[in-house]
Amino acid sequence: MKHEQQHNPPMKYGMAIDLDKCTGCGACMVACMSENNVPFKTDESNKLDSITWIRVYKLTNGKSFPDTDICYLPRPCQHCEGHGGHSPCVSVCPATATDYSHETGIVSQIYTRCFGCRYCMAACPYHARYFNWWDPVWPDGMEKYLSPNVSPRMRGVVEKCSFCFHRYQQAKNKAYLNGERRVPEAAYQTACTQACPAGAIVFGDLNNPEHKVHQIVQPDPHNGNRSKNPRAFRLLERLGTNTKVYYLSSREWVRRAGDNYLAHETTGHVSKPHH
């Protein structure tokens, strides 16, 4: 196995989410929570303490009726690479409870090592990280639905989207047993990708030219992995977080809503950050 890994170029799992296709139905959120044993409380209307690894935001163009346009934006963990794996959260965790994998590009979270200081949450501008303020409690009988492949989290630790990492592990084992060198594209897909009825989410290896996500995004490694697709943008790209979730839209106002711009700046063209 080790031998094979050395010969495999590193992967970089990522997503392309077409916001012009997203209907805001929330199926990705439900699929994700169900897949990943995310707990729920009787009242989840306080969104500041409601765990949703992928959250669908509703954006508007700010114009009044009848010129109002809306856009739904699903936000999983962006799996920032930063500069060489220096993602905002990984670099600050004092106990190495979250890590950037150079093999898959996935930012992991080790629940049993996290001691709940929440520094990573302070560091994440996407609010992709959630704290278990409460003990997870499932109604009687409902614990039967829990996935045995994902460990439930205890009170007092941080959790977040893992790109369904357990599915990667299973696919990797299967590929190994089948004698395949690499995990096939279809063998590893996230729950949200599969649940999206509009097919708005495309998931795969951004490094692999055969993968659809690579073809859509066309990441430019010489330009900080920015997309060469004119429809594509990343959230808060200019912060240098170097995320692996790309968004697509033909609407200029949607692309502009993906980052902070000074009044005179044109969408998609910004100066380099100072760090």
């Binding site: 929330g26 959120m29 439900v30 929570m33 169900s34 729920f40 009242d43 989840e44 209307s45 306080n46 969104k47 409601s50 949703t52 669908v56 509703k58």
Partner: peptide
């Protein structure tokens, strides 16, 4: 179902 109601925005139900 619980997961679905959890996806409802806080501008549709609050408490």
């Amino acid at each position: 179902a619980p997961f679905m109601i959890k996806t409802v925005a806080d501008t549709v139900i609050k408490g």
